[in-house]
Nucleic acid binder design. Sequence first.
DNA 1: CTAGTTGCAAAGAGTTTGCATGGCG
DNA 2: CGCCATGCAAACTCTTTGCAACTAG
Lengths: 130, 130
Amino acid sequence: MPKYITKQRKAFLSYLELHPDEPLTAHQITEALQSENISVSAVYRNLCDLEAEGKIRRISRSGSREVYYQYTDADACKACLHLSCKKCGKTFHMGTPSTRLIVQNLAEAEEFAIDKTDTVIYGVCKDCQK
Amino acid sequence: MPKYITKQRKAFLSYLELHPDEPLTAHQITEALQSENISVSAVYRNLCDLEAEGKIRRISRSGSREVYYQYTDADACKACLHLSCKKCGKTFHMGTPSTRLIVQNLAEAEEFAIDKTDTVIYGVCKDCQK
DNA sequence: CTAGTTGCAAAGAGTTTGCATGGCG
DNA sequence: CGCCATGCAAACTCTTTGCAACTAG
């Protein structure tokens, strides 16, 4: 948790708030904040801080060597599961009833306590299915 | 797809087959095959090949900087979802009925076509819940 | 004034690649 | 014998770190 609100941190945070749930690379963020003269190290340090606070999800997987950071607007989505479209990259929030159904089914049928924050379900969204 | 069956590749593949669905680092694999005198580059090259063939899942996420490779024994688990325990690291295969239920629910309630190969559900398994 | 934050450049870690050598078929 | 795979070391890229300078409170 930040103690000083510097110009760089302010820019960094407001950029993330404008792109919630969007998979961003460290490089992308640095580029976007070029006008604010933020350094790569500051970006990484801030990313690490947020990751430690659990406000950012870091992901990398098959198909791309890139590492993505996703700003997850805290409370808004602690109750739901996240759906990520492999085509457009957008993230969707699963409705509460569906989420509950899955959580319950997993608990009952598999005795598995799902972690809603960590899990991301991949697939193809409505719009990209055409 | 391999054209020659070399001693190193044979050792590499049989090691993976002994550790299906287990999250392994490239370093770990190299260490384990030390007696076979396999080089790091050979390990990486073989990992890349399998990843391209879709036989290996590469994953890295918040909480650890490590990159894990998981050998997914092809056909055996194309029909089910994977559960990964955050405590013991083991992977479990979700039963077909439960899987079907989730797939269907996602399709109906969210119009989202889940990709069973890419998705991994994180949480805590039965044994680790105690 | 004091302590947290930044920028820079150097250090690190993990992964990839070029090239000559060696081995499978 | 011809081509693929390997090993080695160098090259790369991304990320982390040390340190001095800066700045918010």
